[in-house]
Design a protein around this nucleic acid. Structure first.
Length: 160
DNA sequence: ATTAATAGCGGCA
DNA sequence: TGCCGCTATTAAT
């Protein structure tokens, strides 16, 4: 189901992010230097202090992203369960691909869990950076390189 | 309609 | 150490 989309640009210490949203939730996060692939108009989000939360987060403060509704409707069922499980990982904590798949209900589907994270349209709000490989390496990131490591460090993860 | 390719993991030789 | 199979989904054949 395709809805009318709006976007806000938000300045942070790490660059300008674009948040794409509609009335029922946040649809996509665009990292600095990337443009939204779908057409959208400028608009003001209905949620209070979204920009403030971004600034605080990129300054290293804890932010309760759970209070923002994220649009997960267009994902296939398993991917959606993975993203919901990943959303529940607390600030500063991490889990493995295996655990993420298990929490989504299919213990052996780590690989498919990786696909779900790759398909994740809303990084940061769905903190896919908190899913790391069992060996302690950060693992993949579908956007520009370095961001996963950066976000983990921002949340106090000391590395392997 | 089938097959290949994925943001990985654990078991077994 | 290296090989194998596994799961869900999409893209290519």
């Amino acid at each position: 189901m395709m809805r009318d989309l709006f976007q806000v640009r938000i300045e942070t210490p790490r660059g300008v992010f674009a948040v794409i949203f509609h009335a029922a939730g946040i649809y996509r996060i665009c990292f600095p230097g990337t443009a939204p692939p779908e057409p959208c108009r400028e608009g003001r989000p209905p949620w209070l202090d979204l920009a403030g939360d971004f600034e605080r987060y990129f300054r290293g403060e804890r932010v309760e992203w759970e209070r923002y509704p994220v649009d997960l409707e267009s994902y296939p069922p398993f991917q959606r369960r993975v993203l919901e499980a990943v959303r529940a990982i607390p600030f500063g904590a991490v889990c493995t691909y295996r655990e993420a798949a298990a929490r989504a209900g299919s213990l052996r589907a780590w690989r498919a869990a990786g696909q779900a994270l790759k398909a994740n349209r809303t990084p940061v709000l769905v903190p896919c950076h908190r899913v790391i490989s069992a060996a302690g390496a950060p693992g993949g990131w579908s956007g520009a390189p370095g961001w996963k490591e950066y976000l983990l460090k921002l949340e106090g993860w000391s590395g392997s």
